[in-house]
Design a protein around this nucleic acid. Structure first.
Lengths: 328, 328
DNA sequence: GCTGGCATTGAAAACGATTACATTTTTCCT
DNA sequence: AGGAAAAATGTAATCGTTTTCAATGCCAGC
């Protein structure tokens, strides 16, 4: 039996309305305010957020839906989102979908039941394409994966350009037979593949691409197989940190020299890429910036629902390390 | 203007009570149940969780309070917690305290206002010692850091034993002048230091220990300084993944050979520790198990509030890698 | 053909806050 | 001092559910 606003009112000898006004800094005389504050302190009163949300019709809550918080990209993004959110007096509900469309649908339904103010969403390609944003009842900011053509705000990396930048870097280092390993569920993978293919075509080279499930294990298996084939690539691009990790494990296991027999490059400047031997050449994503931008964009959208849609496209930064050293 | 249970009742031609009963599978005739379900489907009705929570006095929500979700240990733990929680129909509110007691207090207050069913808490030493669990109004399961003597459930690593295990391993590899670098805010750091000091004393060696703020930067700075001093250690133990990372960076920068001039060992089997050159010898914590055990323990406590307090102590696993190779 | 009992159903009272509106008190002007 | 306007306060409705309690309908048993 926790103490309610009624108990505080009784204790302070005022009406519940006055207590509410003191808490929400409405107009109250100094004398009553003092009495109420004393009563609050004495009773250890804590407002009930469920009641407050029900009555005010504002939940001050947003959803953050990602594939897996253990992916370092999402770890950092989520931390940035939460920092901005809590500063703005908003709570965050975190959901892990494992790139599973059923889970995505389930969590979206949950978001509706929670009556969230808005959602930041890293959707799979399937969901992103089919999503009826308007019918959801709350604004959505897409991150990482693009939304259905221009139907909602988004914060994205320029994936095509970043992939192309990797290709050009590898070409500049003297590699020609370049392969790419991409995730088969995200639109991110598709875009990076597009950038990769375009850049290769631009110089008239064939773009050998393979698609795998988004896990280190799948990447490891595919890479191991690929490396045993005739005409295996001289350089390999992996479309995210997890896939790159799988590739590195396969390479270690097979005893392949890097970059001697195989150069590597990928995405996501995870801590291990710096400390591995050799260090991994990667595109670093501005993770804090992505999280902060997404949350700020959502807040602005909530403030002015009618403002035109926006897409913020951020550039990646090439971090050159030993895994792609010039051939000598 | 979202549709409420009232609209559904009107549409189905029944009372709101009946709709509520259909949703909560109370006793309803098949005929009415069908009509209600049709009305629910047609109207796209979504129950309002705030209202439900207010009325039922059950929030089905727990709090997870950690220092920083970017710490891989907490990343994995949180994922495990959330999986178990969602399966049990519970929501999770995640809070990052940055080991800041003020933030801890603030989030605990927030948990009260949310009327959470319970909290899983990785507290700083200061808060863990001073915490008045009984006055909080909800059960607490401590993780990682021990709670105030036996006042609440806990899931812990056997830190003393683990630290001792590292010391014995290093001794067995021929190292004698062993130093330890520990976090100065967590009780984890304190316990690991105790295990370290005891193990060293047991063999009659001096235990050189230093304490730093819980960040890679602080560890890097302290390690760099230490290595320049006369009588610098031959082997160094770092009390968590972040500190070990800092030490490795300092070592790289100073061009110190590992393990030739300095052997290294630490805690947390983060992915980089395997891929770094040389690989890091570490104590691996059963992260999934810790998260799952904590959440299950909380659920059991909610079911039977009067059951006696329990502490689950899990053993770490020594992973031997190149950074602590026997001197030769 | 009643009556007692059981299973369904509905009306209305909570849950704990905010807020529109009515009322009281104060302020300030003439 | 009197009265109008402004400020402070209280009363009561409301948010969307669940749940208690009373009412209804139906059936079996006599």
């Amino acid at each position: 039996m926790t103490t309610s606003i009624k108990d505080v009112a009784l204790l302070a000898g005022v009406s519940v309305a006055t207590v509410s006004r003191v808490l929400g800094n409405g107009p109250v005389s100094a004398a009553l305010r003092a009495k109420v504050e004393a009563a609050v302190a004495q009773s250890g009163y804590r407002p009930n957020l469920s009641a407050r949300r029900l009555r005010s019709q504002h939940t001050h809550t947003i959803g953050l839906i990602v594939s897996d918080i253990r992916n370092p990209f999402f770890t950092s993004v989520s931390r940035a989102v939460e920092d901005v959110a809590y500063q703005a007096g908003m709570r965050v509900i975190l959901c892990n979908t494992d790139e599973n469309p059923d889970k995505e649908a389930m969590y979206l339904r949950l978001m509706q039941e929670e009556r969230v103010s808005g959602v930041i969403f890293a959707a799979t390609r399937a969901t992103a394409d089919a999503l009826d944003v308007a019918g959801l009842g709350f604004p959505v900011v897409m991150i990482d994966r693009a939304g259905p053509a221009a139907r909602c705000d988004a914060v994205l990396l320029d994936n095509r350009a970043a992939a192309a930048q990797l290709v050009e870097h590898l070409l500049g280092c003297g590699y020609r037979r370049i392969g790419g390993l991409f995730g088969n569920t995200s639109s991110t993978g598709a875009e990076r593949h597009a950038g990769f293919a375009e850049a290769m075509e631009r110089v008239g080279l064939p773009a050998a691409a393979r698609f795998v499930a988004p896990s280190a294990e799948a990447a490891q298996a595919e890479a191991a197989k690929w490396l045993r084939e005739a005409g295996a690539p001289e350089a390999l691009i992996a479309s995210n940190g997890l896939l790159l990790l799988g590739v590195v494990k396969a390479v270690r296991e097979a005893g392949v020299a890097v970059p001697g027999r195989l150069a590597l490059a990928g995405f996501d400047n995870d801590s291990w890429t710096e400390l591995a031997d050799p260090g991994m050449t990667v595109i670093e994503q501005p993770v804090d910036e992505i999280g902060r931008a997404a949350m700020e964009m959502l807040l602005e959208r909530l403030e002015r629902p009618e403002r035109p849609l926006r897409k913020v496209v951020l550039a990646g930064r090439l971090v050159e390390r030993g895994s792609s050293q010039p051939r000598g």
